[in-house]
């Protein structure tokens, strides 16, 4: 249990579902959850080349007296040892703490700044996006209601970030023992090209060992084909692989996926360092 996952706890029923998701994720992958029970509405995350300010929705500060007990209860109900609580050490200003960023994973709901009523399909908040863009760790975006996933699904489009996502998928499959499916939407590139990419990265052996099947979508649009992804799969995908501007204009896998699929997602940003 050398890996750690940061979770920001919201002491509401919605927050409970999110923490259940995180706890399940940690249980399956042998990760220690590090829980931050917010003491202030704001915090800063200093990444390498950016500082992201997160203004939490007011509901994060609700009933602080029961928060820690709830956290321990939820985490232990998943059969995990007691979680570690994040104790704030550094402050940019007296009410503006800095949160460390050297975790292996972080759990973010689709939006952490807005009211919970806004959280739904088709919307990922701007802060969450900036965290994904800057973080060294993959960001876990849980679905609204806890549902134990039973397999992993990697979206592989051939880009550098998709490769990282694939490597992460293989690693998670290795640790958790859950089967791994890879999905590729054929566009200009053909099946052979994708296989070449895999070979040139030296992932051939791992692909054979861990991947249950590799689905290629040849016809129909990507959005339509997403029905093929198992309903109980954790989706692993890369984001911003082509640069932010290009993706804004031409759309991206992440955008399509997050509007169509309610599954939990693990998003790999451009600064993530992948290893199998």
């Amino acid at each position: 249990m050398e890996m750690q996952m940061l979770h920001i706890f919201r002491n509401t029923p919605l927050g409970r579902e999110t923490l259940l998701e995180s706890a399940y994720f940690c249980k399956r992958l042998d990760i220690l959850p590090v829980v931050y029970v917010p003491a202030y509405v704001k915090f800063l995350m200093y990444f390498e080349n950016d500082v992201v300010q997160v203004d939490l929705d007011g509901s994060y500060l609700r009933s602080p007296d029961t928060a820690r007990d709830h956290v321990v209860e939820i985490v232990e109900s998943m059969g995990l040892p007691a979680p570690k609580f994040l104790e704030l050490k550094h402050f940019t200003a007296s009410t503006l703490p800095d949160i460390p960023v050297d975790y292996d994973f972080m759990c973010c709901p689709r939006s952490i700044t807005d009211m919970s009523s806004k959280i739904g399909l088709g919307y990922i908040g701007p802060r969450v996006r900036r965290i994904v863009q800057n973080a060294r760790f993959p960001v876990y975006i849980p679905s609204a209601v806890f549902k134990p996933w039973q397999s992993l699904a990697v979206m592989f489009g051939g880009s550098a970030n998709a490769l990282k996502a694939l490597k992460l998928g293989i690693r998670l499959s290795r640790i958790s023992g859950f089967p791994l499916d890879v999905f590729t939407q054929e566009g200009r590139r053909k099946r052979k090209d994708y296989e070449d990419i895999i070979d040139s990265e030296g992932l051939g052996v791992e692909m054979d060992k861990y991947v249950r099947r590799w689905r290629f979508f040849e016809s129909r649009s990507f959005a339509e084909n997403l029905y093929e992804i198992p309903h109980d799969a954790l989706i692993v995908l890369g984001a911003y692989g082509h640069g932010l501007i290009k993706e804004l204009f031409f759309g991206s896998t992440m955008e399509t996926l997050q509007t169509v699929s309610p599954n939990s997602m693990l998003i790999v940003g451009p600064n993530y360092r992948a290893s199998v």
Binding site: Y40, V41, K42, Q53, D55, T92, A93, S94, T95, L96
Partner: peptide, 11 residues
């Protein structure tokens, strides 16, 4: 602007 910080120079 939800600045949440002090007067400037210390920051």
């Amino acid at each position: 602007v939800r600045e949440g910080a002090g007067h400037g120079v210390p920051e």
